[in-house]
Design a binder for these strands. Structure first.
Lengths: 153, 153
DNA sequence: CTTATTCCTACCGCGATGGTAGGATTTACA
DNA sequence: TGTAAATCCTACCATCGCGGTAGGAATAAG
């Protein structure tokens, strides 16, 4: 029931790029130093984000990375999917619709499906921009009775 | 972001016991055969549930296991916590309130905290009885607009 | 042509997962 | 009293993913 460091670091990179964009491409060394993370490990994580098309890169001198889109156009779900591979909480929930052969009679499947939907709904609703602007009401306020809902969806 | 087989099997055992109770204690062999799972592996999982106090056991001939309480009094969260150890999606969210030293300035922490709250709210709301009665509306209907809410919380 | 950078492949220790094996202990019942 | 049926306990083990390291090839700026 854990998001690995891969997913957390990926999000950290995205946040770092969102904050430090504007002056072209940002080098891996800069990101690693700012975030105090292993450069080599970050490199492998970033390559997943590149292959997923959510980051752009430029090789050679003065090269580096930058966001492909506006921060508001990234859902957290999208970022985590690239590094975690799947978001489903159990492997009997398949992303492509294929289910295990016991699905028809499995009494616990609706629970896992429901859990998956709850997680999906939350991570799809929060954007990269919500994080960099510190929108705590949107991130934490879902079950806070003292918060009036601002996202009426 | 996965619930391991330990957690899934634990829930399977609880459901099996809830369904086959009434005639005293149920043996491990019976559970394993019905659910088609490894007896020895189930044994180690059940021992966690015993130590957690949510199952009762009887040794010797005609012994076995049974629920300690009514199915409606078990939340799924409680069952999974015993086998998974933690429910927090990232290790920077501590169950006992202790946080990492960067917590004050970490911009992604509210996201993980919010995700934890969403998962906690869902798993705490669903009970063992909801599963054995197949309460699909409660398990799946949270984001289904055609379902009138029955659990007003 | 040198320097700074990404890209690619390979490797590696560690711990958790998903089991298996065997015996000690306890209880019912004949 | 003895035996069968059951839980309990300890140890072991193969495999896999995580978290990370290393070294070099390709590319681009100046």
């Amino acid at each position: 029931m854990m998001v690995s460091t891969k997913g957390r670091y990926a999000l950290t990179v995205m946040v770092d790029l969102a904050r430090n964009s504007g002056d072209g491409y940002v080098s891996l060394a800069d990101i690693a130093e700012r975030e105090n993370l292993s450069m080599k490990y970050l490199e492998s994580i970033i390559s997943m984000l590149i292959k997923g098309g959510i980051l752009q890169s430029l090789r050679g001198k003065n090269g580096g990375y930058r966001l492909a889109r506006d921060p508001a156009d990234y859902s957290i779900n999208e970022i985590l999917l690239l590094t975690e591979g799947t978001r489903a909480p159990v492997n009997c929930i398949m992303q492509d619709g294929v289910q295990c052969e016991k699905a028809a009679t499995c009494s616990t499947l609706p629970l896992w499906a429901g859990l998956d939907r709850v997680i999906d709904a939350y991570l799809s609703r929060i954007t990269l921009e919500d994080i960099i602007t510190g929108n705590r009401k949107k991130m934490l306020g879902e079950y806070c009775s003292s918060c009036e809902s601002e996202a009426a969806e």
